[in-house]
């Protein structure tokens, strides 16, 4: 805790950000991968430990701050974005990250999440989505699929889930991304992009809870299938995917459709790369990003990477800009000015 080691950019090891606390997630939990990626990213970015504040809510993922040698605040269920907003508004110079889960952010804390996103507070929010309640030992969450059998849904869940990315895009988030616990390099890239972003960066991470929902993402993230089941979004590149880069997405009848490249379809048309949709996450119009977020997981590719990254002044910048502007114009008042203001009279 008292280490005052310097942090010359580029020379840091990820252990620089490791606290002295024993990590207590279940062995094999996807959280380890995320912790690793965050520590490595911070090291690669050469961040100062004392300038980082990590705020979390409640849930397995929310133990995260204890494992980081930074400032940390393990708050209450669902409220991390609100606590973090208080920190960031007070001290815009601090790097404030929020760690949350699908229950924490989307169920009990849904209100804070949407309002943080629409305001564009400069927080980097990592949502660990394991599609289950882990800490309370296995109930369905707002991202569990229909029919999911859990302790609180022994006959299958009839609770319609929602999609975190669609939600974030819908409320006007300025940075929306998705990555996967087992794809360390991809995650570090996304985390770096989030760090660079002004305003709220929202990152969903598919995270395996190997105790209560093991393998939930296997059908799309297992090494053998991943290339065919995921489409990795690259700015201003056509939407190509597949082990042999042989598939792509076109815009057809107001929606995205998968086509095979170089092969004639039923109409006889042979699709080429230049026919594919070119994706630009900086497009202020969120329609295409929204369509991507809505691709069917069962038979269409799942998008990962940055879906949206647009320029918009952060909330704290606007708040402090306004204060500065008014101070420049009017100047600060002394306490005396304030108290002796208004209509006063003298009694002799």
């Amino acid at each position: 805790m008292t280490a005052t080691q310097d942090s010359p950019k580029g020379k840091l090891k990820k252990t620089f950000f490791k606290s002295d606390q024993e990590v207590r997630w279940c062995p094999g939990c996807g959280d380890y991968g995320i912790l690793n990626a965050v520590q490595s990213t911070f090291a690669e970015l050469g961040l100062e430990r004392e300038n980082i504040v990590i705020v979390s809510g409640i849930g397995c993922s929310s133990r995260f701050p204890y494992y980081m040698e930074t400032y940390g605040f393990h708050s209450i269920h669902g409220r991390a974005p609100a606590v973090a907003t208080g920190v960031k508004l007070s001290r815009p110079e601090l790097e404030v990250w929020v760690i949350t889960g699908d229950g924490d952010a989307l169920s009990i804390g849904g209100n804070h999440l949407i309002h943080t996103l629409r305001r564009n507070v400069g927080l980097k929010i990592i949502l660990f989505n394991n599609r289950i309640y882990g800490l309370t030992k296995g109930q369905f969450s707002p991202t569990s699929e229909i029919g999911k059998v859990t302790k609180s849904s022994p006959y299958g869940s009839v609770d319609m889930p929602f999609n975190p990315l669609s939600l974030a895009l819908g409320v006007g988030a300025t940075f929306v991304a998705r990555t996967i616990d087992v794809m360390g390099k991809h995650m570090r890239e996304v985390l770096k992009a989030a760090h660079e972003h002004e305003g709220t960066a929202f990152i969903e991470v598919f995270q395996d809870c190997n105790i209560f929902n093991h393998g939930a993402f296997d059908p799309i993230v297992k090494k053998e299938v991943r290339d065919d089941r995921l489409v990795d979004l690259r700015p201003n590149q056509p939407l190509v995917f597949g082990q042999d880069h042989d598939k792509g997405l076109i815009w057809d009848c107001n929606q995205l459709r998968v086509v095979k490249l170089g092969e004639a379809d039923e109409t006889g048309k042979v699709w080429k790369e230049e026919d594919l949709v070119v994706f630009d996450p900086s497009n202020p119009n969120p329609s295409l990003a929204f369509a991507l977020s809505h691709l069917r997981e069962v038979d269409e590719p799942t998008p990962i990477g940055v879906l949206r990254s647009i320029k918009q002044a952060s909330y704290e910048k606007m708040v402090h800009g306004q204060i500065q502007g008014i101070q420049d114009k009017k100047g600060e008042r002394s306490l005396e000015d304030l108290i002796y203001a208004g209509k006063t009279w003298e009694v002799k």
């Binding site: 609100a82 208080g86 960031k88 209100n111 804070h112 309002h115 708040v319 204060i323 114009k329 600060e332």
Partner: peptide, 24 residues
């Protein structure tokens, strides 16, 4: 504002106090 006061009209009572906790 000219006295540097930061006011945050939160989305609800809970966020109001939680932001206050964060600011403290």
């Amino acid at each position: 504002k000219q006295d540097g006061v930061i006011t945050f009209q939160a989305e609800d009572e809970i966020a109001a106090i939680c932001s206050t906790v964060g600011a403290a």
